[in-house]
């Protein structure tokens, strides 16, 4: 019962997100809009109910289960992209290497600056 109440809250916010997407005409998925709405609502309220916290933890813990049917698709669409596997592989490997290093470098630089200016204060 408790879990279901939290689950209902999440579904209602998802539906609100979908409604906002269509009504405002934003090119953003209803789930993301619902997520922003939930975060904003919680920040305004300043607290979170146990049932909502439990329900979201439960759903997030089975995230891998929920995405696996979609991931399987990649093994069955192989021929569709057969001429491009090399491109996709290079883009993913080099792109991820560059972006991982960039993030670390940017964070180190800006966090270091924060720590430094704090110590100067």
């Amino acid at each position: 019962m408790v879990l279901l109440r939290g689950f209902l809250v999440l579904i209602v916010f998802f539906m609100l997100g979908e409604a906002a997407r269509v009504l405002i005409g934003l090119p953003i998925s209803g789930g993301v809009l619902g997520m922003v709405m939930v975060t904003a609502t919680l920040m305004v309220r300043g607290r979170i109910s146990d049932e909502l916290a439990e329900a979201s933890r439960g759903l997030i813990s089975v995230l891998v289960l929920l995405i696996s049917p979609g991931v399987v698709g990649v093994f069955f669409i192989a021929d569709q992209f057969s001429g491009h596997w090399m491109t996709i592989a290079v883009a993913l490997v080099v792109g991820t290497l560059l972006s991982s290093f960039t993030t670390l470098w940017l964070m180190k630089r800006s966090a270091g600056a924060t720590v430094e200016s704090a110590s100067h204060d």
């Binding site: 998802f14 997100g17 619902g34 997520m35 939930v38 975060t39 979170i48 759903l59 995230l63 924060t114």
Partner: peptide, 29 residues
């Protein structure tokens, strides 16, 4: 099963809210 991905995306807003104090502490970097 995959229909649950919608509410699960919404659920990601919860840890985001719960970690708001971390965002505030390190908001600049």
């Amino acid at each position: 099963l995959t229909v649950l991905l919608g509410p699960t995306t919404v659920a990601l807003g919860v840890p985001l809210y719960q970690q708001m104090h971390h965002i505030r502490a390190l908001w600049k970097p």
